[in-house]
Write a protein that binds this DNA or RNA. Structure first.
Lengths: 223, 223
DNA sequence: AGAGTATGTTCACAGTGTGAACACTGTCAA
DNA sequence: TTGACAGTGTTCACACTGTGAACATACTCT
């Protein structure tokens, strides 16, 4: 299936991705023009086409890398909280650590978070191929695992487990958007810190105390 | 201060905005190239510069219009729920109606929601001038009012009122992102409908039952 | 009638993503 | 060893974008 002959990998692909990561750290996806990246590496614009189908493919590759950075940061945060003490190992607090890690990364590296989000964006379904078949990003799997642990240890009842990750994810993603691009983008860090904790805590606790019944009824379907 | 003479308003500005709204309904902000809009109206590209400082100013103007459509939809939904019945007038259910209205609009008109969000985006602080001095969008004010009503009627205690709008807003915005551009963008409508209700209900109820203490402690500050 | 201004046009330029043709370089098969 | 060839990077070219400058027209006011 493979060609009979081949040459050396040349390393340009890696250099482009790394330079993309460097540029995107400041300006997010918007800073990653194809010509900009290639120029910054010191190579002609069309050289990129030897390693990526088009501009979007380059973006996706950088995005996947950024997503890995995000995942690593979250894992670190969860590990720190777990070893740092007392109740840090309780599964519901691991979910909390996950959220705080995500938000921490988002506030500290908004450009990279922008990149990381791009991986699941729009027409770029090529991300799944790069990641190895699983369309869901590593951070998502971390959250799923933590929630499953909550069920296993009895903190979360089975009935509430389905879709629980989307509830948490909504809160995190929404707050992140508010705090980076939204109305809260000029709020001071201590306020954001407090608010992030409250949102995560509220959401996680609401999940564990959620009654099975559907107490509120309004008119017809959403859509 | 104004010049002694003037000519007729010509109506091009309005036509550009309306055409932008029409184009953006399908493709969101990305579909609103300056040349694209002017060409679609049947006028030279630079004609737009007689009514807008630059491309971004046109985008903002269209975005403000889209935000108005969103606000109107939410208001309609709240009114329907209020008149349609029984408990629809309870302030906590008005918050629910707000969220459902927002999400309904987002799922039905993703292009317009994209536009509406652009109004508070990035460098475009010109939106506040267009809207008349208040930097916060109409939808936000609707939510604030509904939450204030919750306090007035005793459903929500004073201590929990501060920042409550951001908690709700996070959940709504996050779910919207998930359902339109995120991992849930291919989920079927009934599932999204159910999930939206659950998220909103969970969040609102968690707000009313939230204890004042901070029960969970993990390591250092977020950032 | 003359002045002035708002509006829309054309021309021009820098910048973007991308396709096609070309040159070099290393690896394989004969 | 030599010839074929895939891999890589370059240059040239094109369509497209946002934007500035100069020009033409039409309207309103004095």
């Amino acid at each position: 299936m493979t060609a009979p002959t081949r040459a050396r990998p040349s390393g340009l692909r890696t250099r482009l991705i790394e330079e993309g990561l460097r540029l995107g750290r400041q300006g997010g996806v918007a800073a990653l023009g194809l010509r900009e990246v290639t120029r910054s590496v010191g190579v002609s614009a069309n050289a990129a086409y030897r390693h990526f189908a088009d501009h979007d493919a380059l973006l996706v590759a950088v995005a996947v890398e950024a997503r890995t950075l995000l995942a690593r940061h979250i894992i670190d945060r969860m590990d720190v909280d777990a070893t740092a003490g007392d109740a840090g190992r309780r599964p519901d607090q691991r979910v909390l650590s996950f959220g705080l890690g995500y938000i921490e990364f988002a506030l500290r590296e908004p450009g990279w978070l922008d990149l990381a989000c791009y991986s699941q964006h729009a027409s770029s379904d090529a991300a799944s191929e790069l990641a190895g078949g699983d369309p869901l990003p590593p951070p998502h799997r971390l959250l799923v695992a933590a929630l499953d642990d909550m069920v296993a240890s009895g903190v979360l009842v089975h009935d509430q487990r389905p879709d629980a990750e989307w509830i948490i994810w909504s809160a995190i993603e929404g707050f992140t958007e508010l705090a980076t691009n939204g109305p809260l983008r000029r709020a001071d860090r201590s306020h954001l810190d407090h608010l992030a904790r409250r949102i995560l805590d509220t959401t996680v606790r609401a999940l564990t105390q959620e009654p099975a019944s559907t107490p509120v009824r309004v008119s017809s379907a959403v859509v």
